[in-house]
Design a protein around this nucleic acid. Sequence first.
DNA 1: CCTAAGCCCTGATTTCGATCAACGTTCAGC
DNA 2: GCTGAACGTTGATCGAAATCAGGGCTTAGG
Lengths: 248, 248
Amino acid sequence: MTLRQDIHSSGIPVLCLSCEARHRGVCGALEPDHLAQLAKTSSRHNIEPGVELIGDAEAVDCYSNVLSGVVKLTKSLSDGRQQIVGLQFAPDFLGRPFKMKSAINAEAATAVSLCSFPRAAIERLMKESPEFVHRLFKQALNELDEAREWMVTLGRKTAPEKVASFLLMIARNIGSSVDPAARSACFELPMTRADISDFLGITNETVSRQLTSLRMDGVIRIENNRRITVDSMSRLERRCGGRGATAV
Amino acid sequence: MTLRQDIHSSGIPVLCLSCEARHRGVCGALEPDHLAQLAKTSSRHNIEPGVELIGDAEAVDCYSNVLSGVVKLTKSLSDGRQQIVGLQFAPDFLGRPFKMKSAINAEAATAVSLCSFPRAAIERLMKESPEFVHRLFKQALNELDEAREWMVTLGRKTAPEKVASFLLMIARNIGSSVDPAARSACFELPMTRADISDFLGITNETVSRQLTSLRMDGVIRIENNRRITVDSMSRLERRCGGRGATAV
DNA sequence: CCTAAGCCCTGATTTCGATCAACGTTCAGC
DNA sequence: GCTGAACGTTGATCGAAATCAGGGCTTAGG
């Protein structure tokens, strides 16, 4: 019994033992020996909000697991208009395989901690472990599903519906539900009103007005501008426009 | 010499010999024996415009290569609002691995010909050929890049910019350029004004007005409502809003 | 302490695109 | 032939969200 346990945990690097990425993230696909090999080249970083992680058209020299915090992926037009095209939460994998340079910007929306790997280590692992590729593939497909979900929101929902859909998405990603059936939720908004507006394709004034409107109607409560409480998730869902961000 | 050539083409199914999907599509990843195995279960279909290929929330029992024509991927809200979340051109691979049911609709926008495979055949191939998974992975990442590109268009571009960006994207996908430097292009719009509006998140009236406006300004010529000629691609590009749909 | 910057909210006004409405064209079916 | 449906264009009007403007709160720094 003790022997068996030894076998199981032996070889797994100490840092990885309690790591979320090993449970739900891409590292979950790795055997102990591959994990050990990867861990040798990995490094952990704590990053301040607002710091740019990957620049547009910049050479990508490392990949990372998001261990905590929220990373926003953005694209910009040359005249300054900006769109957030994705949000990454722990334990998402950050980086675009098969491409030398990134077509998007990645920036820490909140304080973020990362576990980073050199490009070469990931590429080697992709050659050696089909399981690993499989995981990366699945995450890419999930991101694709999410991107398409937001295309509907961007293209076809009204401003009130957009803001409600955003809150619902955030609640599902980082909300701590008070009761087990998730009838209510509470969370800290991981970004400013301006960020939210860049995510939803509207102005920050409109975001502000819609949040006020939701608060006035008793759908949400707001403390210190950032802390949101949703008493009835189903009431919020009803404001999202016919079955949209639900599928995430 | 002749022997060598025999070796090369032997085993490749006749139907696949001139197939675009074997050159630029996912089948290009397959060795002759895998290709032969897959071809045994494949079937070709010609599909009329408007026919639904995959229904929302429907069980997916087959995957396909698009051999010709254009397939539109759509998502709808329950009140009827619709958004086109992707377009697939030959030789794209149609279908969502790892999920039993589709979250989107797929519909033939034009006449379409497909080469279809049973779900099980694709799944078996994914187990046996890492090269094949690799190709599917790459296509998924390309689709993700495209989806994010369109998120910028949906969220941050004006109606005139949206229509210009759409024309540019179509021209690059199916346009036959008159001169080699692609200074001009000519193509048949693969979809109706209503479809275009569902792709761009605007109304068909607005699409019509913007096309008229581009025609009036001499940026495009229109024959029979569908045939578009772009004399100067760079003029069209300048109407797309600061560097947007360029990266596709 | 005061000041300036960043973030957020709210009101007034403007504008872009939606909506409503009408009409022309093409084409399938009777 | 006629009729109706689908598609496309154009004009008039309306409205949702952008823009413009001002003010409050918090925080960092002199």
